[in-house]
Design a protein around this nucleic acid. Structure first.
Lengths: 118, 118
DNA sequence: CAGTATCCAAATAGATACTG
DNA sequence: CAGTATCTATTTGGATACTG
């Protein structure tokens, strides 16, 4: 029998899972995080170059969102011209293993068998 | 210096990651998988009941998609009335640890600190 | 029981042009 | 350099009603 407490716990776990997948499931969020993991603290145009294909607006929205959920820190460096640097918080860094596992799972189960031999 | 080979590999890794997050990032996919992991092989209405809030159409679309990417198997049992049972493939089962890690990460970094003491 | 058929609303992503 | 402003297209998710 499922007690009322069980039901509550299940819905709490669903909510936790959803919060994570809402972040990780956005088109650019995981690759931005992955880039910051690999390359460290970067400026807007560095990221834009590394991402290849992303538009200004989409990167901007993406970084805003990542800040708002506490995965990325934005720091304004007061040079001339002013620079801005983005880096991961520990929450962001802690996604590394999950991202690696997702990638590994994908390679194992999702790669349509490459038609490699000519 | 980034060689051409490095660039190609990076884009391949991005594609792998994207394939995984496209699945895991859908609103209901991870919770359907999670339910099948916990409860095993289930019928349409069992799942619908366990999911609470999902509509027929959305569950139907979701199961179609999970089949098409090879995570779920659909089996028609020829009783009267006919039953249909859904279960995970090994690719689906192999997502268990990733889903658990996502949940754990979420609890550690995303839970807005519960206002628990009255 | 296990869905389909319609229609609709909201969320995401992208193109293009412009700014301090 | 680091964005914002618009406008549009596409993708999802959902409500409701109906079917073999």
């Amino acid at each position: 029998m499922a007690s009322e407490a069980d039901v509550l716990q299940a819905s709490g776990e669903r909510r936790d899972l959803r919060r994570a997948t809402e972040i990780v499931g956005k088109k650019w969020h995981p690759v931005v995080i992955s880039t910051l993991l690999a390359d460290g603290r970067r400026g807007f145009n560095d990221l834009k170059g590394a991402l290849d294909g992303i538009s200004d607006k989409v990167l901007s929205d993406c970084l805003d969102d990542l800040q708002s959920v506490g995965l990325v820190t934005r720091e304004v460096i007061d040079d001339k011209p002013v620079r801005v640097e983005y880096s991961l918080t520990t929450a962001g860094e802690d996604l590394e293993s999950v991202i690696e596992d997702l990638r590994a799972w994908s390679r194992e189960h999702l790669s349509e068998d490459l038609p490699d031999r000519s």
